[in-house]
Amino acid sequence: MKILAIDTSNRPLSVAVLDDDHLLAQTTITTHRKHAEFLMPIIEDLVNKSDLKPSDLDRVVVAAGPGSYTGIRMAVTAAKTIAATLGIQLTMVSSLLTLCLNVSQPDVLVNPIFDGRNQNMFTGLYQIGDDGNPIELIEDQHINLDQWLELLEPYNQRVMIIGDTDAFEEGMRQALGDRLIVADKLADLPDAARLGLYGRQVDPVTNVDAVVPRYLRLTKAEADWKKLHPNEDTHNYVEKI
């Protein structure tokens, strides 16, 4: 199976092309946030360098969020359009889980973090299973640091934080003390090769056209609206004319 894997959830961009479990080509960039300009040329380049044509691809694997709204939309728009236009499979993977693929120790809990500003984070809790794949212990969510620490309380293992950890390290160390481990800098970056390898085993979506990013957060306008209209059906807001 020829796989194209894409992650532009945050500042780093990572794209890879795999043939089953063989990596054919990969690019990871952290110096620019020009995903709009870079993503398609990099996909084109990697598929070329893999001696493949677009129509040779069998599946697109995308890190679908959470993350920067523009970032996850870029990856998901490219991924779902490529899958839809070529009539191939699309597999969605959590962008937080994607970071956990960089960790192999089974004896620590893995706590991937994206900065959601103002001491808010996109985060979840994982443990590496016997097959080497992350198992979700606490589901991905948008939450502030204090509430997250409450959710972590029942767990007394060591916790490895990974990702955009700078803004949260101190607060987490106060709560977890010596049990806190900070991942190395390379592990903070998504690795599209590992994303593709993992996504190879995950079922593809059944309806590519319906795919949207995992924002895990309503827009402010929608959240305010929902407070005032808690029972409204939100499904028919877009009409074909």
Binding site: Y69, V76, V212, Y215, T219, W225, Y237, V238, K240
Partner: peptide
């Protein structure tokens, strides 16, 4: 043409982030 007018009418005008989310749908 898929129009989002109904959605933005809730807010009295086009909310850019909401617009982007509808486009990708």
């Amino acid at each position: 043409v898929a129009t989002q007018i109904k959605s933005h009418q809730r807010f009295g005008g086009v909310v850019p982030e909401v617009a982007s989310r509808h486009h990708i749908e």
